[in-house]
Amino acid sequence: MSDLSALSYYLGIEVRQGKEELMFGQSMYDSKLLEQSGMTECKPCVTPMEEQLKLMKVSTTAKVDATLYRSIVGGLCYLVHMRPDIAFAMGYASHFMEDPREDHWAMVKRLLLLRQGDDGSMDHLSKDRLRVGYRLTVFSDADMAGDIDRRRSTSGVLIFLRLASISWLSLK
């Protein structure tokens, strides 16, 4: 066993640990994805998906580079950790990994442009606030290749940050 020092970067999440707070962000990972897709100079958008967007696997639009599509969609999956608001759009985009087309790629580009609109700030989690009145609880579960026919894994994470009750505080 070896000590690898304090956590600073994990699964695309930058972590800065101070004496009184933890800071989390993904601006460096966002920049890498935008650069990889060639969209660093594009204007940002504010919604993850067009309203009432209906896409089909069988499309008449031109094919796109499947390797790039899969790489970007896979990379965007790591952004869901800090931005659960893009989870539905990410799940929808992943349906078209087998044969991606121009209309599918347009949806993925919109997700990238949504991320570009972020100002690069980090989320702060104060240790004092956790001691004084907030309680952080994290649950995770996974089954590795639990689907026998398709050999696919299922995983999930639930994170709760809630105000602790007065009785809980008085017991401590």
Rank of each mutant, 00 (worst) to 15 (best):
S27I: 07
C45R: 08
H124T: 15
S59M: 01
R115W: 08
G38H: 03
A62V: 05
W105G: 00
E20P: 08
Q52I: 09
G91I: 04
K63D: 14
G18K: 10
M23E: 15
T40Q: 15
R110V: 09
E35T: 12
G12N: 03
E51L: 12
M28D: 13
R70E: 07
S121A: 08
K63L: 13
D65N: 06
E21R: 11
M122N: 07
L53S: 00
H124N: 11
L76M: 10
A6I: 14
T60M: 11
Y78M: 08
A6S: 14
G38P: 04
L76K: 04
L68G: 04
E51Q: 14
T61C: 01
M122E: 11
G25S: 02
S31M: 10
S94K: 03
Q26P: 04
Y9G: 04
Y69L: 05
Y29H: 04
M107P: 00
E102K: 12
I72V: 06
P44M: 03
S71Y: 00
V108N: 00
L7K: 03
Q116Y: 07
R83N: 09
I13T: 06
A106D: 14
R110E: 09
T67A: 09
K43P: 08
G75T: 06
Y9Q: 05
S37E: 04
R16S: 14
K19G: 14
Y9K: 03
D65K: 03
T60L: 12
V64C: 02
T40W: 05
K19M: 10
G117L: 02
R115H: 12
S27M: 11
S59W: 03
G74A: 08
S126Q: 09
A87Y: 07
Q52N: 15
D65A: 02
T67K: 11
L33W: 04
Y10F: 15
G117M: 06
K57R: 13
K127I: 13
A87T: 10
R101F: 01
G75I: 02
D99Q: 13
L125K: 06
S5V: 14
S121T: 13
L111Y: 04
S31H: 13
D3W: 10
D99I: 09
L113H: 12
H124R: 15
A66N: 07
C77N: 14
C77M: 15
M107I: 03
R70G: 06
G75V: 04
Q17T: 11
Q116S: 15
G12Y: 00
I72Q: 01
E35A: 15
D118F: 13
T67V: 11
A106T: 13
H124K: 15
L112W: 03
D123A: 13
S2W: 09
L113D: 06
D85T: 07
H104W: 02
M39N: 10
P44W: 02
R83C: 09
S59H: 04
D65S: 02
L79T: 08
L34R: 00
C42N: 15
D123T: 13
L55E: 05
S27Y: 12
M1S: 14
K32M: 11
L22K: 08
V58S: 12
S121F: 07
G38L: 04
G12C: 06
D118K: 14
M82W: 06
M97C: 10
G38S: 05
S94G: 06
V58D: 15
G120T: 05
P84S: 01
G120R: 02
M49F: 09
A93V: 05
E41M: 12
D103A: 01
V80Q: 07
